[in-house]
Amino acid sequence: MIQVIQQGLLDTIQDGGRYGYQHLGINPGGAMDRAAMYVANILVGNDPEAAVIELHFPAAVLLFEEDTLIALSGGDFGAMVNEQPLDINQPIWISQLSILRFTKPVSGARCYLAIRGGLNNTPWLGSHSTHLKAGAGGFEGRKLQKNDRIPVNHVDEDIDKALHQKYLHTTQLGTPLPWRADVRDLYSDGSVIRVVTSLEYPELTPASQSVFTSHLFTLSEQCDRMGYRLKGPALHMVHEQERLSAGITRGTVQLLPDGHLIILMADHQTTGGYPRIAHVVSADLPILAQLLPHSKFIFQIIPHDEAEELLIAAEQHLHFLQNACNLRWQEWLQHNQK
């Protein structure tokens, strides 16, 4: 079990998302930064889409009731086990009754905590993701609160036996294992967000089209799991007209009636009627998920088939990392197994 001893701003259980229910108005949700969820999970030998805790800063203070293996990825929130700082993107052995706290927002907007074995909550409609509006999924359908005790799946494989053996008498509370995942190829500095154009893009005035592709846009304070509102020059359609609502997706860039843009994120509504200007490519959604309010970027339009290739390349990189992690564990076992 993991105990929440101090509540954070918005800490929820998320996984790869809940698909198959959008025709009922139930959006997929899931981790905002899937790459970070993936990396945190593979570092501890989990399924890449196993349930993790998505943390926003200031994040919860957590007490581990048992010895366990964890990994952090995505945002760096200055994690500490007692007074010992912990890096992101590496597996860390945590001794029983250790307290994990997050001290400062060093980088990124969301930090992912994976625990070996994954979290053991009852899934809702096939997913562990917390659906805040529905009040279902994750931990009782809500954000984590003080005194919550989150059940963790128990794993007892060779790695776990060897870890217990090795660290049985350790006095250190958090022991990093000597390897880390290099995630630099999965992220950029966030100054360029790549998009493909959408159905109503041609209906923007030529001047607005040129603004869209050349002007710096800024993330406003109104950025959450549902969507990011942008600040920038107002854009205009050639003809203002009412549109019928239709299905929309994560990454859709809509033009609001006030002329400003919103990017739909993980907890977006399933349908909408605002003009669809563009869509952030899937490969850049992790980058966007880690941007904070006041971040500035430009949109770069790329061809549709290139967007697919970018996602394939990112996925190949994640597979490469997963294989490398598995190899490290095998080597580690050879040296440490009795």
């Binding site: 698909y19 198959g20 959008q22 997929p28 609502s245 239709a246 299905g247 929309i248």
Partner: peptide, 26 residues
Amino acid sequence: LDIIPAYASLTIVYDILLVRREQNNN
């Protein structure tokens, strides 16, 4: 992954990675 009917449209959400793992096509 999802098929979303609306007034006058159907939106189909699919898993790019799964398609590309099995099909040698866009």
